[in-house]
Nucleic acid binder design. Structure first.
Lengths: 147, 147
DNA sequence: CTGCTACTTAAAGTTCACTTCAACTCAAGG
DNA sequence: CCTTGAGTTGAAGTGAACTTTAAGTAGCAG
């Protein structure tokens, strides 16, 4: 068993086949084909899927994940060092997200005391008007990426 | 100036008029009408909008925000104590979200060292398969609410 | 060869939180 | 009275990240 079918990759990664096909359309993962046009995944794809899952937990969009994956070498299977570099690139993002939430928590604690929630007085209600400035479409939670 | 027009409420809250109309359709805020059918907001609505904004930062969905707002007394203007109670109810949510991200950060640090990202070995890739079990539609980031 | 499960596609649907649009009315200043 | 900016509606559109559906094909066990 050198390669995996889509069902096998799905089972091992916990990602639905429909999502794997979607990722392929979006250029996030790749597959070769059998003579009968069925996908066969190299075992190395497991790590790509793994990276996608982790990145999503960090709050990174598929667009950005695609960019990150595009920075991997194309001529060889990525090494541990390659994956380490990518993982490290999200650390700062994660740290910032945590910091934002901690600030919110602390300010919320203060506001629980005063019960104000006043837009005039309370810092909480206007953290730089990020949500208001976000433009069209639904805002990603806490605008990861613009933070 | 006892009441606010939608433009005024928008300016003071930083929430677009279209969003305020949307919130009204969704039963999150209320407005009376002039003889010419224009909305007039009681000043107390400012606090509701403020609460909505803060709740969204905590990662709460509009559905749940509506539920929370529904628990406010209907026969009188909510007091500071009322708002304090609601704010406090999100504290736990926020704390859990922070904890999840901190776990992720620590595990990611470990994985940066080993560069593994292996679905078999690495805890990161399978934190309870939450994303996979989420059902239809896009998953809210880190599934706040199911955590 | 039969039957079965797993696979294939394109296109349309889903959820959330809104925004945009078109066509219209209201309110207030000059 | 006229103009102008702010307000009204319902319906349709947006973006992200997928899922669902329908109609058909592949691969393998018996």
């Amino acid at each position: 068993m050198e390669t995996l079918t889509i069902g096998e990759l799905s089972a091992r990664s916990g990602v639905a086949p429909s999502a794997l096909r979607f990722y392929e359309r979006e250029g996030l993962i790749h597959a070769s084909r059998t003579s009968g046009n069925q996908r066969r995944y190299d075992r190395a794809e497991l790590r790509r899927v793994s990276f996608i899952k982790i990145s999503q937990q960090v709050g990174v969009s598929l667009d950005e994940i695609r960019e990150a994956l595009a920075s991997l070498p194309e001529n060889r299977t990525p090494t541990r060092a390659d994956w380490s570099r990518l993982s490290a690139s999200w650390r700062f993002r994660l740290q910032e997200r945590i910091a934002v939430l901690e600030r919110l928590r602390d300010e919320l604690s203060g506001c629980i005391g005063c019960g104000c929630l006043s837009l005039q007085r309370c810092k909480l209600a206007n953290p730089g008007d990020r949500l208001a400035a976000g433009g069209t479409g639904p805002q990603r939670i806490l605008n990861p990426g613009t933070d």
